[in-house]
Nucleic acid binder design. Structure first.
Lengths: 181, 181
DNA sequence: GTCTATAATTCGATAGAC
DNA sequence: GTCTATCGAATTATAGAC
């Protein structure tokens, strides 16, 4: 069965995202990715040049934060954590960044950019003391990423067992306090 | 210069801990560790058998929680975060576990054990509803590990810029609420 | 567009001389 | 106790046939 150029590229990219998400950068081999995609390893090189470029293509990610101005100030915390859970469960891009960023400085830098630039606008909602804005958004990052780490990566049993509603009820007030408390 | 068996072993272990802490398991090579220790790679094999055993020797870690019964109930949150910051900054064992556990199931399992068994006794302090104990200690894990991840591993600028006192003041009440709120 | 063959490198591990 | 030499496996990457 001969596929089109685009089909092959898409299949490779999908397999690459899965492998990078579950194995990290080092352990995700081009051979395994090609095998998953049902093609020859040489095809991966043909379409993406080398492993680094394949990773770059597979690891794009956007927090896709909702319009913060449209959210009632008192609902910021719960809305944020709810949104993050959605993004984590429906896009493996964040899993890729976390699993690779902990041992790859370039990826870590990318995460710094994402969280600084996309979470930064949140600071605009904190009218009282603008100088506290970076610290507050930073604290939000720690709780959100910590939940993702424990629930989806390390799978700590008590955290994995929490229902979505429980998480929203527990972390919502925490984020709310970090942001406007 | 001929060293004693113990000296060599200690030097290898120190170099191994640094490498595993900064590079994770895959990228930390026996060759690099031996080079750091100023000896031949063959010596590493001689003293530790193989890479896995070397890692096991380098990755032992204990949260060393203080006696929780001696802490006033209302000071649990601040005491806990303060203790965690101390442990993290004075023992690279936790950094090793975090940097390797995200892509190594065996290490992840070890982290699950550590946080379950060593943080479990905290549940004994929660007299009201024992059924909530696991969830509460799990939530503590998310905030503590999230802080470590953002501050020491990813080095998000706003989080790395926080002073120790600021962290205690912000996270203390969060942990307090997760535990007894 | 797909695959075979293979080069070049890296790494873990072993054997054995000194 | 230390090192040289080397094996064998795995992996990225290239060249080229079909």
């Amino acid at each position: 069965m001969r596929r089109s150029s685009e089909d092959t590229k898409t299949a490779i990219l999908a397999a690459a995202r899965e492998r990078f998400a579950s194995d990290g950068y080092q352990r995700a081999t081009i051979r395994a990715i090609a095998s998953d995609a049902g093609i020859d390893p040489a095809m991966v090189m043909r379409y993406f040049g080398n492993k680094e470029k394949l990773f770059a293509a597979a690891a794009d990610f956007d927090l896709k934060l909702p319009d913060l101005m449209a959210i009632p100030r008192e609902a910021l915390g719960k809305t944020l954590i709810s949104h993050f859970l959605d993004r984590w469960e429906n896009d493996e891009g964040m899993m890729i960044l976390l699993r690779t960023g902990v041992t790859n400085e370039a990826v870590a830098e990318r995460m710094r950019e994402i969280f600084a630039r996309q979470l930064g606008p949140l600071a605009a909602r904190l009218c009282d003391d603008p100088s506290q804005a970076p610290a507050r958004t930073g604290l939000v990052s720690t709780q959100v990423l910590g939940m993702a780490l424990c629930r989806y990566v390390l799978r700590l049993p008590p955290v994995a067992a929490l229902s979505r509603d429980e998480i929203v009820d527990w972390l919502g007030p925490t984020l709310q306090r970090y942001l406007v408390g």
